[in-house]
Design a protein around this nucleic acid. Sequence first.
RNA 1: GCGCCCGUAGCUCAGGGGAUAGAGCAUCGGUUUCCUAAACCGAGGGUCGCAGGUUCAAAUCCUGCCGGGCGUACCA
Length: 607
Amino acid sequence: MNLLTHLQRLFHGAVEGIVADPARYAAMVKPAQDARFGDYQANCAMSLAKQLRQKPRDVAERLAASLDLSGMLEKPEVAGPGFINLRLRTDWLAAQLQRMAAADRLAIEPVQPPRTYVIDYSSPNVAKPMHVGHLRSTIIGDALARLLRFLGHKVIADNHLGDWGTQFGMLLYGYKHHRDEEALRSDPVREMVRLYLLVRREIDPAEKVEEEPGNAKDYSEADLTRSREALAAVRSETAKLHAGDEENLALWRQFMPWCYAEIEAIYRRLDVHFDHTFGESFYQPMLVGLVDDLLARGIARPSEGAIAVFVEGEETPTLVRYRNGAYTYTTTDLATIRYRMEQWHPDASLYVVGTPQEMHFRRLFGIARRWGYDTIELEHIKFGSVLERLPNGKTEMFRTRAGRVVELGALLDEAVVRAAQQYEQTRADRLERGEEVPQLSQQEEQQIAEVVGLGAVKYADLCQNRTSDYVFDWDKMLAMDGNTATYMQYAYVRNRGIFRRGNVDPAALRSDPPRPILDTPHERALAVQLLRFHEALDAAVADYKPNLITAYLWDLSKAYSGFFDNCPVLKAPTPELRQSRLLLCDLTARVIQRGLDLLGIRTVERM
RNA sequence: GCGCCCGUAGCUCAGGGGAUAGAGCAUCGGUUUCCUAAACCGAGGGUCGCAGGUUCAAAUCCUGCCGGGCGUACCA
């Protein structure tokens, strides 16, 4: 049960007879911002009083008195200028926890009716190595997919690979001029990466000068000439591929699996999965007819040799075909929308793509609606850029210039190495203090390092507000103290340790849960926090913001720490209290594990 | 030029109409006869970029300004 929406419903009922727009006032029920004010607070009396031309405190008193407490709430208190402070009844909390313990899925019922979501995430360019910038789309998209599925929706995860662009022209050119036959035989995947980076460096000067002619001063005449020739050759290879050139097409078919293998290894490691990986190439056959259709319906029209969609008030049009006959990514995206609608009839389609593409999606969605897809929820789940700190102290977006990006594989390796080192350090510190240290096999240690290291990387990204940019920083990305996955994983481990030490089987607590006793503030606070899990998930999905889950887990872990430090479990004063506390522990473990799982982060039993 | 986003503690960032603005890191101090100290408790530190406005109530909404970023017809 989502406590907040439940309370809002109660207030909706209380306000219904008084005003015309009860929902507005019901929405003013919020979690209390200070524990002294109770668990929740209703802030509607003040504005209600204004409208009714009455005293705020009088309105609050009357509202409080008329509220259906439904066995859930203590008598509300009116405070300050007219806040209504709500406190959940302890016996009600206990009953809910008991229910939660016995229920599958922590008493979170699947939504009715479920919706069908297409989520488009990760979507890397296949020919180039993935770098930190790709992490966000991949991880945020995966988390949203997991969350929506858990809540009961149907999710189709589609990885819209960039498998048809200039980067393949680069590979074709690189293959034809620089290939190393031996390397190609022994490790084609690495050879693809090498060729990409090589050509990248080769054409970089020419591209930079095209962007900004002033950059020409950075290069010698000869270098620039060579670079321009290479760039022209790359473009010609791309054009030949797109025109159906047999040789290039055959090479493309050969390269694709090699390139994808590189990416797939990272997905496997990150435990990220897709239902489909239709790349851009998949949609190419549909583009001619699509543009004809846009022309026929008067949505697009020829302009300066290209075919463009104009929108009143917009300075520039959106091109769906370039003068040279090539189709644009808008065209491919439109084909994708049509294909998805015909195949899956989704209620919503989410695009987890960086903020810089905001305008593209605004225009794309506008055209799609004019084209007839006007009932589906099309949503750009935008996220901020990963920035790099320059030597002069300023920050700027990572450019895909050779050598300047942090490759994702290297980041993940580093994370795991650091986790292993951290573990060694911690173990040594514990031994020095004369503490017990879990005896772990080499293999187990490696497994822990993997889970902790990758968890750190994912959590560092997910706990930020999606829309903020952030400056990449190894230490921050791999941090393992404070509000991090490691903290959560450790809370889980300590929790499981109790069951191991006490030789208690949690299954018994679930099949026949005792009624918890919530007499201390620590136990009560933990109970409330546990019951707010559903609320946190709903909030996260409402804004498509995974950081609301991490914020919740952090609060939960803090509540658990307070409980852990103050309430002995195995040595509880009475058997009843022991059982009650074991139940709280088990629920906490389940919520942490589930919460992390929804973020794509794993747990271990010992560390 | 136009459009969108951002400016909150030393640093990194939450919060995006409600009570005394929060966290992590860093700094300083404390905690282990007790279930894993990768933990816990405490302290210092902020005119929420500036100026107006709306509101019973503004870090939050509106306008202007300053500073920064991104995007803006043939890369995706």
